[in-house]
């Protein structure tokens, strides 16, 4: 197991390094001089050169890339062009919004989607099943930011139960922060819950048809016990795969939904960075998002081993 873990982590690190290289190269061919762009038309060649030196842009590309890689480990990611503050600090600050948002959304999606999928499977081909699958089709089709807008319309503007945007920070305790995160998390979670419900349903239906379910029933287990104790654990294997794949959609979803709810998270930071042509910030942010998606995929591989003994290396 340890060998497997080590190998998987090594693979992850290699993938991350490749991603970093690709991102760096892509942004390197970007036309335009960020220093010139920041200083505007009145800048003299001397002030531009000074700023280039300050930002380290006068160094050769290879050295800048290596410095960035080292910075990813130490946290020293350079200065944001636009904000003139360290990128590491900016990202750390916004992390406290996006991470809880993503985790909350993931929990909501699993908490809604998996039980509904199990319910549909255990009543397969009944009216309940048809209704649940119809609703999940709708859930798949509705973009998360429209869910967000509708929630704001109904629960904030209409009923006044929730703030329509903004984030009070964690200093006032988890209550107000979670209150501000719950609608955006739900908006992110619903389309994902729809996917999970559909996958769970077909996985459970497939598992319920397996011979070991008959063995379990022959032991004296009820249908429900056989479902929970035997079918579900097997059905979770494909569900976890999808959960991992969905996580990358969730991350990009945060970019959009943070916009809807004016949350000061990584996603909004990314959009602002793109608007401000803030390359230092963009490259680290994009790598963070891609890296998070890759890390979750690695976690899924490891979770496989826990869920499915056949995948465990001997």
């Amino acid at each position: 197991m340890l060998r497997f873990l080590a190998a998987r982590i090594a693979m992850l690190v290699a993938a991350l390094a490749t991603a970093a290289l690709v991102i760096f190269l892509v942004l390197e061919i970007l036309p335009g001089d960020p220093a010139a762009a920041m200083l505007g038309v009145s800048a003299t060649p001397e002030t531009i050169a000074a700023l280039r030196a300050e930002l380290g842009l006068d160094q050769p590309a290879a050295r800048r890339f290596l410095r960035w890689l080292a910075g990813l480990v130490t946290g020293d990611l350079g200065l944001s062009y636009a904000y003139r503050v360290p990128v590491g600090g900016l990202i750390g600050e916004r992390f406290g919004v996006t991470l809880p948002l993503a985790v909350l959304a993931m929990l909501l999606a699993a908490g809604i989607g998996i039980p509904l999928g199990v319910a549909a499977a255990s009543r397969a081909n009944t009216r309940l099943d048809a209704v649940l699958m119809g609703v999940s089709q709708l859930g798949l089709a509705i973009p998360n930011f429209w869910f967000g807008l509708l929630f704001v319309l109904i629960f904030s503007i209409g009923l006044g139960w929730f703030p329509s945007g903004g984030f009070p920070g964690w200093s006032a305790g988890p209550g107000p922060a979670l209150h501000a995160l719950i609608l955006p998390a739900l908006a992110l979670a619903l389309p994902m819950a729809a996917v999970l419900a559909r996958i769970t349903r077909s996985a459970v239906i497939e598992a319920l048809g397996e011979d070991y379910i008959l063995t379990a029933r022959a032991k004296g287990l009820s249908r429900a016990e056989a479902l929970v104790r035997h079918a579900l654990r097997n059905a979770l294997i494909p569900v976890v795969t999808i959960l991992g794949l969905q996580f990358s959609f969730l991350l990009t979803g945060t970019v959009v939904v943070e916009g809807v709810f004016a949350l000061p998270g990584l996603g909004r930071l990314l959009i602002q960075a793109i608007g401000g042509h803030d390359l230092m910030l963009i490259r680290s942010l994009v790598l963070m998002f891609a890296g998070a998606a890759m890390a979750v995929n690695a976690l899924v591989d490891i979770a496989y081993g826990l869920l499915d003994p056949r995948m465990r290396p001997a």
């Binding site: 991603a19 970007l30 959609f249 990009t252 990314l270 994009v286 998002f289 998606a293 995929n297």
Partner: peptide, 13 residues
């Protein structure tokens, strides 16, 4: 492995 919208963001950048 790159999420679709994120990739698009990169390209649009």
């Amino acid at each position: 492995a790159f999420p679709i919208v994120l990739s698009a963001i990169l390209i649009v950048t």
